[in-house]
Design a protein around this nucleic acid. Structure first.
Lengths: 289, 289
DNA sequence: CACTGTCATACCCGGTAGGTATCACTGAGA
DNA sequence: TCTCAGTGATACCTACCGGGTATGACAGTG
């Protein structure tokens, strides 16, 4: 085989080993036995002429080239499965008799709710609108969904989401508010600054994941909106979130505008190389909102 | 095999057929016989549950799903070979004893010459600079080189190059000049407007390829700088190019500033997901120029 | 109505991916 | 020091499947 060709199978195998750093567990995850996996990785290293893994006593670690292949390979594997998924969708293979024209729109669950509603209504009114499947996802999951083809287009909020590697169009800029327990003293204020809410001893700031990891700090780690709402209602934390979140405030919550928080810009984003007519229509509709 | 997995081999095969629209020629290009290729495509269609090609009398054409797979598949295949190439480079597999740390920088041949010189000098002065291999390329080839891993980073000029899908940093903004045959009447002017040079009957404007194709028009199609220079010297054409091109003017050329041409912005650009230390150093150096 | 061009089918073969059994090595305890 | 557990590598076998050749089916053409 050519020296700069990789089979998808080889990528899957290497990524499994590189993530587990253990041939046995990687083989189990791949649903195969350990020896053929060892051999496949050896063949890969031999063909590339590069050592990818350091087999030292008690374990495996990545070489520099291995790090590169792990990152580049993930991107390549995502692109490959994206190709398969989008092709299947384009062919209407989702279900028998399913619509031939469908877009999957990834949205952070309960985020940008009002904007999403307006967008869907406006697009549905278009003459030859495709069917839009709304795919609710966790915080910061949109990038991965676009990359591996589970979604075609997403609503993202800068700077929470990274727009790097996607094309995008600005939709909405909004300020941020602090959401506090209604009974907390700070809830009585007309406005607050970031400094006011970031160092309250009895009310540590909630922490959101950024690119898969949580920043350090005393506050609770947040996975979804509901959990956050409950923790605030219980008086355990305070959150800084976009203005449109007022839509889901509870009775025990109080929203106070923040004077100095960075504005949140909601974008509609899609993979750079996309060029389907349905997607173009959706983007045009969104840009006219 | 899982229904949303594609083997690299299948992608190569399908893309060949989709580009040739002819099984026999595609098989020849792939260095194999036609029957196994036909069978492979059938298996692919069956596994995806999607029809990709329309085999009608006298030829083959793409279905909608086929179009999607052609585009997405090209991106995926590029990403895969990029992974292989960059891994090999990271492991120093380029040559025996070759340096472990090397970046390939794609530059339009003879473009941004002065800037490139400054960049290379400044970077070489850095304490732990990697080796930079300058890869001269044709007009608008940088994008492909970055995508399939033949290059790690490129100098691109907006709006000639499309920065979509890459991260980039602005380096230089410059105006444009018209390069004319020295003996032409227009060469005597102090300044010109785009209108002045775009409709001169005896001096049709040279045409550059944009994304692989040439815009229509009477002027000659330009492939490289030297050819352009010669055609201008012969009095056959006029070109509108960035100010820094004064560096390679011939004696028979005259440069006249254009008052209303869009400015050219040279960027340094790299694949979004890159994160090597060497690349980060080069970008930092470039941003400080 | 032969003839040509094109893709599909039938059938065969060899390479290789994957399985099982086992080895070689190393670190941890008793 | 001597097991013993844990890990990756090796040896060997089998079955599948990717690829080749020969040929068929069909349509358009002179």
């Amino acid at each position: 085989m050519a020296v700069d060709t990789l089979e998808t199978r080889e990528l899957r195998y290497f990524i499994a080993v590189a993530e587990e750093l253990h041939f046995g567990r990687a083989a189990e995850r791949l649903g195969m036995a350990q020896p053929p996996l060892s051999r496949a990785i050896q063949q890969l290293e031999r063909r590339l002429g590069v050592s990818l893994l350091e087999r030292n006593r008690r374990g495996v670690s990545l070489t520099g080239a291995g790090e590169v292949l792990l990152h580049e390979g993930r991107a390549a594997l995502d692109a490959t499965t994206a190709a398969a998924r989008r092709t299947r969708r384009a062919g209407g293979a989702d279900g028998p008799g399913g619509p031939r024209n469908r877009l999957v729109l990834a949205v952070k669950a309960a985020g940008s709710h009002e904007l999403l509603h307006k967008l869907l209504d406006a697009y549905a009114a278009e003459p030859d609108a495709a069917e839009i499947e709304v795919l609710p996802c966790g915080i910061g999951e949109q990038e991965g969904l676009l990359r591996d083809g589970r979604a075609d287009v997403a609503l993202m909020q800068a700077p929470y989401n990274s727009l790097a590697g996607f094309d995008s169009e600005e939709l909405l800029t909004e300020g941020q508010i602090a959401i506090l327990p209604a009974r907390h003293p700070l809830a009585a204020r007309k406005t607050l600054s970031l400094a006011d809410v970031s160092d309250v001893p009895d009310l540590p700031l909630a922490r959101w994941p950024r690119h898969g990891t949580y920043p350090p700090g005393p506050g609770p780690e947040i996975h979804d909106q509901t959990q956050l709402a409950q923790l605030i209602a219980l008086g355990r934390t305070v959150a800084v979130i976009p203005d449109s979140a007022r839509a889901w405030l509870w009775a025990e919550h109080t929203a106070v505008p923040l004077t100095d928080a960075p504005p949140i810009v909601t974008h509609i984003a899609w993979p750079t190389h996309s060029h389907s007519l349905a997607l173009a229509g959706l983007i045009r509709t969104a840009a006219q909102l």
